[in-house]
Every structure is written in C-alpha cells, then in structure tokens.
Design a protein around this nucleic acid. Structure first.
Lengths: 187, 187
DNA sequence: TCATAATCGTGATCAATGTCAAGAGCCGTA
DNA sequence: TACGGCTCTTGACATTGATCACGATTATGA
C-alpha cells in the first residue's frame, strides 16, 4: 500500500528513501468492507484519505434523509470533507465504501507536521489541490451548460469504469436527478 | 495596489521586505474599464489574476452563444481559467469586467519561477487552493440539495454586496436558471 | 439452492422551470 | 429633454424532471 502512495507522489515530486520513510510514518493504513463508514456526519476526526484500492463515495444527507453524492473516490484519489479537515470542524458529510477498500490516511496534526518538516511536499499537495479546483470548475460548468442526458453521457465517457462499478441510482445521486430519469434515457 | 497584495498574503504568510520586493517584481498591474475583457476564450495567455479593486466575471459561452457565469471575483479574490493557466492550454473561458477594475497578475512562467525561488509561497497558494476546493464543494452541494429559490437566497445572504453590484440576469447566469425564474420569486 | 434484498424499467400525474412575447421603468448621453 | 439601451416584470404555453406505484430482473448470502 505504501508503495502505491510513493509511486503516486513521485509522479509529481521525487523523494529520497529517507523522505519517504518519514512520510510513511505519518500515515496509517486501514481496510474497510463494502458498506462501512470511514467517517460519519458530525464526527470530529479530520483525516485526509488516499485510496489505494477500492471505491468510496462522499455523501451529504439532507434534512429529508436523502443521500447526495458529492464525489466518488477510486484508486489514487484523495478524499475528505475538505472543510472539516482543513478548518478542524465537525464533518458535515460521510465517507462510505462502495467496494471493499484499502486506504492510507493522515490526520490533520500529522499533515501540518509533514508540511512544516518537509516543505517541498506542499508542492505536491498544491498540484493536487489545483487539479481539484479544475475538476470542480468543470463539474460546475457542466451543470450550467448541459442538460441531464448530456451530463449523464459525459460522466460515462469520462469515467467508464465507474459506471460499471456503481449502480445507476448512485450515478443519479451524483448528478442530482432521480434514478427514474436516468432509466428513461436511451443512450 | 501592491500593498493590497502584501496585506493579503501576510494574512497567511509573513514576508520580509526583501521577499515582498521579489514577489512584486513578478507581478504586473493593469486597470480595465467596465465591459473590457481581461482575456477571451481561445487565447493563449495564461495568467493568474488578483483583484485589488472592482468586480469580474469568469464566463463560458456555449455553442448557442449563451453566457454562463462560472464565477465572480471581487476584491482580494484570485481568478483565472485554472486549467488553461496550470496546464498551459488555450483558455476555454473569458474574464470580463463588470465594474472598472484594478488587477495584479502573474504569468505562468513567473509563477513557476516564484515557486522555485521562494518555496514557502507554495504554502500560501496551497491554502488558497484548499479554500477554492472547499468553496467548489459547497457550491456543488448546494446544486444537489437545494432548489432554485433556496440557492438564490443563499447567494444573496452569502454575498449581499454582490447582489447589489450585479444585475439579476447575471445572478441567474451564475445559478444556471433563467432571469424570468428569479423574477418570479418573492423573497 | 433458495430466499431476500438490490436494482432496474415503465406508466401516470404533477410541479418546476424554460421559452417566447410584450411592456414598463430607469439611466446615461447627445 | 428625448432617445436608446439595459433591466426587470408578468403572462401563456411547452418541456423537463420528480414523485408514486408496480412489477421484472439480477445479485447476494445463509
């Protein structure tokens, strides 16, 4: 699992063995089964997760108990309730396994410690955060410019494996439409 | 204008005079009048803008010439076509003045030079990017959980000055609804 | 293997919103 | 002051998608 992380980081930032040993010491690994929560709304444990293997969904549950999918996370993706993590607040969302999943995670304190001790890692996280902003900008744009059917086909084209691993009802919850609506489309 | 930038950065990262002199040398300042373009779709000049005074909109124009507002930018906000800037591509969006506006901007090359020469600035940009992700996550969430009227009132509550500085039709283009729909709401 | 739960598709109905059209009010400028 | 441009409102109608209901199919686990 740690090798996965190392490869992932070194795509952006070369590391010495010593540096990576230090990084590793600040992460913990954990495996979850399908259906389990990595964290739940209202908890106070802010961690940043790296998915080594598996598939997660980050969801928000509204006042009518409807589940909205803020994002999926598959192999090599980072995931967390950013606001809760970075501002040290209670989580407003939950992170749940769609498949059995292996993750590495870092706590906020360890993250700060890492950035202080090994400042060049901030370059790595900056690049990740930039791409996060780009992806978010694109998703917002697609809600502005495209109708539901277009967004559905774009999603499938962009993440073909996701569409195979996730039931349609979950794709609907990600797109913000009812599952019936997706069902009626002929692609 | 440069003092504005310095105050802005120093909220997150203390700077020596020497450091700030160096930073300043990599930014240019420019003033634009209401209606002018800072850049236009299809151009190849990637810059990252800091708004000292005024108000901008980042728009995407679709195939039917409809204008969608990806984001507004007011005082102390950073703005750019992130993808074009960071990946050195042609812009797919345009940045336009809603009011007369003074900006500072940095080119991609200077940005890279800055990060290489003064790595601690990456801490500043990382924090900015993180907050950008948080804001985007929230905006996506609001489209998933709230109806149009709720999103409209949330927008006004959150950015009361914006609602005063921008015509309703532009707020509609930001929310992704028709101006007629906003018109029919009694708040 | 069987029982149960998930998932998916489809019809009927209703609410929300887009679209087109017309007109009214406001503001800056010649 | 008068004009044109911009903005906002409102009505009528069409379209999209949500909701509820039901049944069929597919996975899953004891």
């Amino acid at each position: 699992m740690f090798e996965t992380l190392r490869n992932h980081i070194e795509k952006i930032l070369p590391l010495t063995d010593q540096e990576f040993t230090f990084i590793s010491s600040l992460f913990d690994s954990k495996s979850y089964k399908k259906g389990q929560f990595l964290f739940q709304e209202g908890e106070n444990l802010s961690r940043h997760y790296f998915v080594c293997k598996g598939l997660l969904k980050l969801i928000y549950t509204d006042s009518e108990a409807r589940e909205h999918i803020v994002s999926f996370a598959m192999e090599d993706w980072w995931e967390s309730d950013f606001e809760a993590f970075y501002l040290q607040q209670k989580t407003s969302m939950s992170l749940i396994c769609i498949e059995n999943t292996d993750v590495l995670y870092i706590t906020y304190d360890n993250f700060k410690h890492l950035c202080r001790t090994l400042p060049k890692i901030e370059h790595f996280f900056l690049e990740k955060a930039f791409f996060g902003c780009i992806a978010a900008q694109k998703r917002i744009l697609s809600t502005l410019t495209s109708n539901t059917k277009e967004r559905y086909t774009q999603l499938i084209l962009r993440y073909p494996t996701l569409a195979q691993r996730v039931p349609k009802s979950q794709l609907a919850a990600y797109l913000g439409v009812s599952r019936e609506t997706l069902s009626r489309f002929t692609l």
